[in-house]
């Protein structure tokens, strides 16, 4: 059962798919980059990366219906707290992870970019749901207002497709982000939950 479910969780990292879709050129102009850290030491970097991966505090930030699934993810049945990611900080200064959960309008875009720029340096973005990934059902001729993919505005680390994606998919996305940060896949789940939980 668990194996079957795992195959359904199809989460794409920021890699080939994204580069193919946008050819890179479009992205480079718009996205703001943090650059490499000033001081680089291998051991301390490894330790700090481990810490960052296991305490991703998300920003309290939901744009539309995907946010309901994100909230569900913090509740009893799925519980992001198991990975230390339940501390939803209201202030962008104290958060590490922005989960763009929903449709980004042209009107919302400046606020989203401001919030992203207000987050301090080791910061990560998850684009959750079809709208945030590539516009979803709004990617049509008649569209005049929806930004087709949040990666036109800010750099995205992990894409989670789905309309909306299930909470397991968001947890899988967080695990993928942990893998990107530390270079190692954390076993899922380390502590076995009772059947049906």
């Amino acid at each position: 059962m668990a194996e079957q479910k795992k195959s359904l969780l199809n989460v794409h990292s920021y890699s080939k798919e994204c580069a193919e879709r946008y050819d890179g050129a479009d992205l480079q102009q718009t996205k703001t980059s943090d650059g490499p850290p000033l001081i680089q030491m291998k051991l301390s970097d490894a330790i700090f990366d481990l810490c960052r991966a296991n305490s991703l505090w998300p920003l309290t930030f939901g744009l539309s219906c995907c946010a309901i699934e994100m909230m569900c993810c913090g509740m009893a049945r799925f519980d992001m707290a198991r990975y230390g990611a339940e501390v939803f900080r209201p202030s962008p200064r104290q958060s590490d992870l922005m989960i763009v959960a929903g449709t980004v309008n042209r009107k919302m875009a400046p606020a989203l970019v401001t919030l992203y720029e207000q987050m301090p340096a080791p910061r990560y973005v998850i684009a959750m749901g079809n709208c945030a990934v590539a516009g979803g059902p709004f990617a049509v001729e008649a569209n005049y207002d929806v930004v087709l993919g949040v990666d036109k505005l800010i750099p995205v680390d992990v894409y989670i497709p789905g309309c909306p994606p299930r909470p397991e998919a968001l947890i899988e996305g967080i695990l993928q982000l942990q893998e990107q940060i530390t270079g190692k896949r954390f076993p899922f789940p380390q502590n076995k939950m009772p059947e049906g939980a």
């Binding site: 810490c51 509740m75 230390g84």
Partner: peptide, 28 residues
């Protein structure tokens, strides 16, 4: 819900990890 669970047995290292992460954050 179980609360912190994956960092160490029953998540007991969670606060150490959080503290180190906060030390590594940019000061704005």
């Amino acid at each position: 819900r179980p609360g912190p669970m994956e960092v160490g047995p029953h998540g007991i290292y969670q606060l150490v990890i959080d503290g180190l992460k906060l030390m590594g954050k940019q000061l704005v």
